[in-house]
Amino acid sequence: MTRYEEIAAELRARMDADPPRYPIGSRLPGYGPLTDEFGVGRGVLTEALGLLALEGRIKVTDRSGAVVLDPAEPPGRIDVGTTVRRNDLGYIFNAAAGHWRPITTPTRRWLPAPPHIARLLDVPKGADVLERHRVIGPDGRPVLIADSYLPDLARDTILEDASTGPGGIYDRLEHDLGHGPLTWTRTTSARSATPEQARELGIPRGGALLVLTRITHSGTTGRPVEVNITYVDGGRFAVEDIISRDETAHWPTTPATAENRPGQPQ
């Protein structure tokens, strides 16, 4: 067992003691006291805390240290099915987020398109795009970061304003700018949080993020008119899909006739 695994095991035992030395909702001692107690450097302690965070035992933040979590509490679910919903606020892509609101006023800026955004929007590299940056969550708690990128069609329109009115940018694109009905495609990936993203979400630097990339296509031209990239704390949320049966798997099934063995062609 490595030193960081030994430290993680000791801290885990303190959480599981009866009564627990570190009960659910309490904070672990800071880096200074723990490195002194265990006689290790900050790097080893960071690995130990990272292991506990991966197990869902603690949440580490740059601001308040490590908070002890309930290991029996399941992660929140991000519904990324194939259905877009709508309520009086507009389109909803995650059912759980229908009541989430911006924590702060969205920031807006024109900037040269980063290479991946230029590719997704099908515009030349370095072309001006409008970035709209928001931090969103329930009850004033930051849960996700949503960055939207729009091409030059947004220039000198309400899409540049802090508030884009009822229904947001999608209603403006569909009804005011003549791009309805919109269609969307989405990919799901993962990456490490940048220092700025970690600060906004209250997670460790380099913490895991779920990355949901959604491309909005014009109903009149078929071209991309917006790219939305949503970053979600991978330690608190999991992607959930409903798996349906294809016609080939329709019940009742017939017994399989082949066995899946190593080395056999599939």
Results as ranks from 00 to 15, higher is better:
residue 47 E to H: 03
residue 171 D to E: 12
residue 80 V to T: 09
residue 5 E to D: 10
residue 239 V to D: 01
residue 1 M to E: 09
residue 202 G to Q: 08
residue 85 R to M: 11
residue 215 I to K: 09
residue 189 S to V: 09
residue 216 T to S: 08
residue 255 P to S: 15
residue 198 A to C: 04
residue 168 G to R: 06
residue 255 P to K: 15
residue 163 S to M: 07
residue 83 T to V: 11
residue 266 Q to S: 12
residue 216 T to C: 07
residue 127 A to P: 00
residue 19 P to H: 14
residue 214 R to V: 13
residue 94 N to W: 04
residue 253 T to A: 12
residue 130 L to S: 10
residue 183 T to R: 07
residue 37 E to N: 01
residue 144 L to V: 14
residue 155 R to E: 10
residue 206 G to V: 15
residue 22 Y to G: 11
residue 52 L to K: 09
residue 165 G to P: 02
residue 175 H to F: 06
residue 86 R to H: 03
residue 70 D to Y: 04
residue 18 D to N: 09
residue 96 A to I: 05
residue 252 P to F: 05
residue 119 R to K: 14
residue 142 P to K: 14
residue 54 L to G: 12
residue 96 A to L: 08
residue 173 L to T: 15
residue 186 R to H: 03
residue 113 A to L: 03
residue 64 S to P: 00
residue 210 L to C: 01
residue 261 R to A: 15
residue 4 Y to V: 00
residue 6 E to T: 13
residue 262 P to S: 11
residue 205 R to Y: 03
residue 265 P to I: 15
residue 165 G to W: 02
residue 217 H to D: 08
residue 186 R to V: 10
residue 81 G to A: 11
residue 79 D to H: 06
residue 143 V to P: 00
residue 168 G to Q: 05
residue 106 P to Q: 14
residue 224 P to M: 12
residue 72 A to E: 05
residue 104 T to D: 03
residue 243 I to H: 06
residue 247 E to N: 07
residue 92 I to C: 06
residue 154 A to K: 04
residue 121 L to M: 08
residue 60 V to P: 00
residue 231 Y to T: 14
residue 97 A to K: 08
residue 129 V to F: 02
residue 242 I to M: 06
residue 108 R to Q: 07
residue 95 A to E: 04
residue 158 I to F: 01
residue 35 T to G: 07
residue 35 T to W: 01
residue 16 D to M: 14
residue 244 S to M: 06
residue 174 E to W: 01
residue 219 G to D: 07
residue 57 R to I: 10
residue 78 I to Y: 02
residue 118 A to T: 13
residue 122 D to Q: 14
residue 250 H to E: 10
residue 29 P to R: 14
residue 96 A to S: 08
residue 118 A to D: 04
residue 261 R to K: 13
residue 118 A to C: 07
residue 139 D to V: 15
residue 235 G to S: 10
residue 14 R to S: 12
residue 153 L to C: 03
residue 145 I to V: 12
residue 228 N to V: 14
residue 22 Y to N: 08
residue 173 L to M: 13
residue 133 H to I: 04
residue 152 D to V: 11
residue 170 Y to D: 13
residue 256 A to W: 01
residue 60 V to E: 04
residue 12 R to M: 12
residue 186 R to N: 05
residue 139 D to M: 14
residue 193 A to M: 08
residue 148 S to W: 00
residue 24 I to D: 06
residue 45 L to K: 14
residue 72 A to R: 04
residue 200 E to P: 01
residue 25 G to F: 03
residue 183 T to C: 04
residue 217 H to T: 15
residue 245 R to C: 07
residue 113 A to Q: 03
residue 250 H to Q: 14
residue 224 P to N: 15
residue 208 A to Y: 01
residue 253 T to C: 05
residue 120 L to H: 06
residue 6 E to S: 10
residue 154 A to R: 04
residue 51 L to A: 09
residue 188 T to I: 15
residue 216 T to P: 01
residue 23 P to S: 13
residue 58 I to H: 02
residue 207 G to F: 03
residue 243 I to W: 02
residue 240 E to A: 11
residue 102 P to W: 05
residue 131 E to Q: 10
residue 99 H to E: 11
residue 53 A to Q: 12
residue 188 T to G: 05
residue 109 R to D: 09
residue 176 D to F: 02
residue 84 V to P: 00
residue 220 T to E: 05
residue 224 P to Y: 03
residue 79 D to W: 02
